[in-house]
Amino acid sequence: MSAQTLERPSVPRPGGGAGPRPWVTVRTAMARWGLRGTALLYLGLMIVLPTVVVVARGFGSGVSAFRDALTTPGAQEAIVLTVVLAAVTALINVVFGTELAYVLVRYRFPGRRLLSTIVDIPFAIPTLVTGVMLRALYGPISPVGAFLGRHGIQVIFAQLGILLALLFVTLPLVVRAVQPVLLELDETEEEAARVLGASRWLTFRRVVFPKLRPGIVAGGLLAFARALGEFGAVVIVSGNIIGKTLTAPVLITQLINGGKPEDAAAVATLLFGLSFVLVLVTERLLATGRKETS
């Protein structure tokens, strides 16, 4: 990569459309192609190639891959459990994450910055440590875990523990997806609605929410996808009881460790298909969201 390849000062402004290019010197053309080539090569080798290979191999065997995936012992239960828990996680965090983003953007109160920092903590902590933390808090040797246990609430080695781990890991995804949209909202539109007689709740529903929707949906889908694939935070907390607390990602590692890479690949392909569709949907939503706000 030569010095000239990194910057092209005469490229048209983003959003300026593909109008006629100003004089393109040989050097800037080289620079553009150098940058473009580097980017394409990097993403091509690192992301596109492995994805294509796996998709080709996974779906190449057609329906049989799915049959394999679903006949693998425990796989069906694991996938259902994973999808359901991911959906519940996304739903809960969409509600509380949106509320949290709203409070962080709109209200001024002591400790607001601290709260904002704490929301980012799950990004910073290794997911496995999240599991360790939950076990330290809710395990039977901790006072909290012991107390809950006496009242018949089991967190560790139960679905509740998995849910808590997933909620923890995905919270910042939703908050950070909604926050920028909220920041860009014109508050006088809300005032206009209030002057016209709309209540607080109606104003939120009819004026604020329609604009937040793309952000909320994108954040929710990201959270869902992340929860679908989460391993580190779950593995220590879940106890991995087949049909009860064994999630699909954990099942895949067990299959690999058990020397059954074909079965693992089948389950992985199914999970991958779900995630891939999700990304496409999210991209589409974000694209339309951007169009609407610009």
Binding site: D186, T188, E189, E191, A192, A193, V207, K211, T293
Partner: peptide
């Protein structure tokens, strides 16, 4: 409002 504040 000064800047219209229409619902976009």
């Amino acid at each position: 409002f000064q800047h219209y504040s229409l619902f976009r």
